[in-house]
Simulated scan of single mutants.
Amino acid sequence: MTLSALIQTTCLCLVLAPAAQAKSPIAEVICEPTDRMHEKLERQFGAERAATGIRGPEQLMEVWTSKSGDWTMVVTYATGTSCIVAMGENWYTHAKVDPARG
């Protein structure tokens, strides 16, 4: 390998290294006691629970949405802890069309 190629490879590695170390937005899951989590979602973010589903005997999945379109997915555990596992924006609820009304 020539000196020029070695320098180019080293520079490329230095440029790409921070990108490889970047964390996912949900790399750090946020957990709180369920009451506190619900209070934060309601008061700080203006969110309300839009959907709930049972994931198993110990877990409940919740989707919280705000009027601005932000959404938060929360897992609530039987232990009394809730964790944010995903967040996003532009939430849209699809209305069902009654086929009898065309």
Rank of each mutant, 00 (worst) to 15 (best):
M1F: 07
M1D: 09
M1N: 10
M1Y: 05
T2R: 12
L3S: 11
L3Y: 09
S4Y: 03
S4L: 11
S4V: 04
L6F: 11
I7Q: 15
I7T: 12
I7V: 15
Q8N: 09
Q8H: 14
Q8I: 12
T10Y: 09
T10G: 15
C11M: 14
C11S: 10
C11A: 14
L12V: 13
C13G: 15
C13Q: 10
C13I: 07
C13V: 09
V15S: 03
A19D: 03
A20N: 13
Q21L: 14
Q21F: 06
Q21P: 01
A22L: 10
K23Y: 05
S24L: 14
P25R: 04
E28R: 13
E28D: 15
I30N: 05
I30E: 08
C31V: 00
C31M: 01
C31I: 01
E32R: 15
P33Q: 10
P33D: 08
P33C: 03
T34Q: 08
D35F: 07
D35L: 13
D35H: 09
M37H: 07
H38P: 00
H38N: 09
E39P: 01
E39H: 12
E39N: 08
K40R: 07
K40T: 05
E42F: 02
E42H: 06
F45H: 11
F45M: 11
F45Y: 13
F45C: 02
A47F: 01
A47W: 00
E48C: 06
E48D: 13
A51F: 10
T52P: 02
G53Y: 07
G53W: 08
I54C: 03
R55C: 02
R55I: 00
R55L: 12
G56E: 09
P57V: 03
Q59M: 07
L60N: 13
L60Q: 15
M61N: 01
E62P: 03
V63K: 04
V63G: 00
S68E: 10
S68T: 12
G69L: 03
W71M: 00
M73T: 03
V74R: 00
V74E: 01
V74Y: 00
T76K: 07
T76P: 03
T76D: 11
Y77R: 13
Y77T: 10
Y77I: 01
G80D: 08
T81D: 10
V85D: 00
G88V: 00
E89Y: 03
W91Y: 14
T93Q: 04
H94D: 09
P99E: 05
A100R: 11
G102N: 05
